[in-house]
Design a protein around this nucleic acid. Structure first.
Lengths: 262, 262
DNA sequence: CTACTACCTTGACGTATATCAAGGTTGCGA
DNA sequence: TCGCAACCTTGATATACGTCAAGGTAGTAG
């Protein structure tokens, strides 16, 4: 059965075959966090809402069994039905270029929303894959639209989320266009650090969920270059790198190296 | 007189005669096109609307005196109040990097909307400048939000517009990250060609409103490289270039050169 | 019409990063 | 526990594009 056919048949079938390719398995029990008591609600979609409204948002959100590492949430070209909030773990979004290479367009951590690039054509414009075991909340877009019409704060917040995606993409464009390999990698490390601290995690010590290849792919560099930059940073005692384990030793030094406001 | 100095003086005058922050001078008469009879309404905001709804949209839109070449519509850091539709001419959006260089983030032609990157923080995240004499329609965002709540089609369409901006930025990210100078310039020429044909203009012959510097800045290349690419294309008889006048001689050749689906 | 200025083109040369190559490390499944 | 495969690191070499330099072209103000 093709993926898209399965899509057509919808949730029920996904229930039945519960397997491999398919995206979200419906949950009978478990996974029952509500937006109201989710520890991410201050940085995620509910951010702008009163508790009554949060309850309504909660009603349209579907939670599910976690995705395993390297499992797809959706693929480029799939019918667009929902956007997704990362609840735990990490995801990457990527496009495949016409000559078969991969362009990573973003990394998504808990509290962050992905899939908004599918709205314009009703088709997902990129693929999304779990970098490690990850749980996501599915937010059916038509429900979100209806709710947005009724709740100005939600409409506003969702406009803002999309706008943020745009400004972040513009940041990346600038980075790719104007900055050296050192600056690009340093910026990414700082970005992850900042996002971690928003989630009340350590800003100076973390484990990278993505491979060097993914980093290179995101930053427009080869693996070798990424690896060399890490070595250089370590020699300069700005970072301690132990495989995927990162410790920022000198934040100021890293910022200087990044040479950008990020 | 330096460009920036002239700009400064321009600002003061605008301040004096048009009232504080506001960029667009209110129009007493003239410039009175309505969305209903605008020849761009099939590719612009009204696209999704019935004529009753168009009339309502029309009510919130402000038109104004044209912008002169190199005049700013808004600047990075300005309070965000409106998005803008280009009515005639062409605009560029750009950010200034911390070390003072410029990153062009987009070119905007008639029917296209700019300014959406300001929604996320209520501050414009980039500056917008006229590449040639240009007219724009100002769409106050709070009015647009209210109207969107009432008109599902408008809400949907605006979500789609923002989503399109995201996918276009992702295209550019891929271009910058994966493609050669030849491919980048070829892609831009094809993009302009496509957009021209949507506006019922020639897909094979047009005048570039932007300088080589702007093109380079947008594509992450130096002027010299852009110039060399044009020379190469001319030698290969793919393009005829006469200063800013472009004629595409071999569309297939150009597509092959671009090596991307654009 | 002239002259200034911004813009564009072409050439010679340098450099950051890609490419190619080889070896080391890690972690997973049998 | 072993062995394989994916991942990471480091070195040597190649190359596309940037930088520097000079001269040409076109639009505009006087």
């Amino acid at each position: 059965m093709s993926e898209s056919l399965r899509e057509e048949l919808g949730m029920t079938i996904r229930l039945a075959d519960a397997g491999e390719n398919s995206v979200l398995k419906p949950c009978v029990h478990d996974y029952q966090v509500s937006c109201g008591n989710c520890r991410l609600n201050s940085i995620c979609l509910p951010l702008a809402l009163e508790s009554d409204d949060i309850a309504q948002l909660d009603d349209i959100i579907q939670r599910s069994k976690p995705l395993q590492k390297s499992q797809h949430l959706y693929r480029e070209g799939d019918i667009f039905r929902s956007v997704y909030a990362v609840r735990s773990g990490a995801m990457k979004a990527y496009k495949t270029t016409d000559d078969g290479r991969e362009q990573v367009t973003g990394f998504y951590f808990p509290g962050e929303i992905l899939g908004m690039d599918g709205i314009s054509n009703n088709l997902h414009a990129s693929s999304a894959k779990a970098l490690e075991t990850a749980a996501v909340c599915e937010i059916p877009f038509t429900s979100l639209e209806k709710l947005s019409s009724l709740m100005p704060n939600l409409q506003r917040h969702f406009f803002q989320l999309m706008s943020r995606e745009i400004t972040e993409d513009q940041q990346l464009i600038t980075l790719l266009s104007k900055n050296s390999a050192d600056e690009r990698v340093a910026s990414l490390m700082l970005s992850i650090s900042t996002r971690n601290s928003k989630r009340k995690l350590s800003a100076t010590q973390f484990r990278l969920p993505m491979s060097r290849v993914d980093i290179g792919n995101y930053l427009g560099l080869t693996v070798e270059t990424v690896s060399r930059v890490f070595s250089r940073m370590q020699k300069l005692e700005v970072l301690r790198v132990d495989n995927k384990e990162i410790k920022i030793l000198d934040v100021a030094g890293l910022q200087k190296m990044a040479n950008v406001g990020g």
